[in-house]
């Protein structure tokens, strides 16, 4: 007898509270995206030509390939730097761990334009980074206006997205297993490879997919640090929209990039919630100190 009353008492208008947020998102994000989908298949009438020409115009595929390649390099760099860093975070004391976590989150709250401006100054011809490389006898590497500079700047801001999922996975691994393996006579490398690495794979996979996916959409960094001759897909999209005014073609390209991204995100979600991982990452600073 008590159960029905309780369910009736539960506040009902939960759905109504969602209406303003859904209306805002629908009006500002979903309707424009839907309109660009319609434009891409309905200009001048129903046609798939705009999609077909993405694959035949000789430019889009090259740029898409270059973008994917850049994203792969950024992913590898962030993995090679992020894995040891996340591991170190699990090994140090709580105070130093807090410091290391704050350092990870610094790129999140350094303003986009301030960060890119700093990279321009650091990477420019005759700038500090080139001087360091010159000192080691590699002075002929060009950083500004090349994919190298774009990769360096992108990897820095993508590192948190690698470190945070890795940190949450590595932090859950019982290190006594490693000590047990050592005690049973295995070398550190074998113990790492046979025990630690397989246990960390979940975090690795979600970090890799997350960084690769987010790297595909970079606009400001390649626009400022790269060169128009080596443009990435976001620059191509912007150029088709604002310079060529090819709204249908830009719509098709935008939808293609969006579909690739969402498929990758859905895939990554199977390894532990990408969207929630970003959400947690973005607010973890305040959580940690609670």
């Amino acid at each position: 007898m008590t159960t029905p009353t309780r369910t009736r008492r539960t506040p009902r208008p939960g759905w109504l509270l969602l209406v303003p947020a859904l209306a805002l998102l629908a009006g500002i994000l979903l309707v424009p995206l839907f309109q660009s989908l319609l434009r891409s298949i309905g200009t001048p009438e129903f046609t798939l030509d705009h999609y077909a020409s993405l694959f035949t115009d000789g430019v889009t595929l090259t740029v898409l390939g270059r973008t994917a390649m850049t994203a792969v390099i950024v992913t590898i760099v962030t993995f090679l730097l992020g894995y040891p860093y996340a591991y170190l975070m699990t090994r140090v004391g709580p105070r130093l761990r807090g410091v290391l976590l704050v350092i990870v989150l610094i790129p999140f709250w350094t303003s986009v334009m301030a960060r890119n401006y700093a990279w321009i100054v650091l990477l420019q011809r005759g700038g500090p980074v080139q001087s360091v490389f010159e000192f080691f006898g590699a002075g002929d590497i060009v950083f500004q206006g090349s994919v190298v500079g774009v990769t360096i700047a992108m990897s820095q801001v993508m590192l948190p997205f690698m470190v945070l999922p890795l940190f949450s996975t590595l932090g859950g691994i019982d290190r006594k297993l490693l000590l047990a393996a050592r005690g049973l006579g295995s070398s550190p490398l074998v113990a790492f490879w046979k025990i630690y690495w397989p246990l960390s794979r979940g975090g690795v996979v979600s970090g890799l997919i997350l960084v690769f996916t987010l790297s595909l959409g970079f606009y400001v960094t390649p626009a400022l640090l790269g060169s128009p001759q080596q443009s990435l897909i976001a620059q191509l999209l912007a150029q088709r929209t604002t310079q060529l005014l090819d709204f249908a073609g830009a719509g098709a390209l935008g939808i293609l990039v969006l579909v690739i991204t969402l498929l990758l995100v859905a895939w990554a979600n199977r390894f532990g919630g990408t969207i929630s991982a970003i959400g947690v990452a973005s607010t973890s600073r305040t959580k940690e100190t609670r």
Binding site: L29, L33, G217, Y219, L237, A238, T241, A250, L258, T261
Partner: peptide, 8 residues
């Protein structure tokens, strides 16, 4: 991707 949203 911000650019896709921005263009649309």
């Amino acid at each position: 991707p911000a650019i896709v949203v921005a263009v649309a």
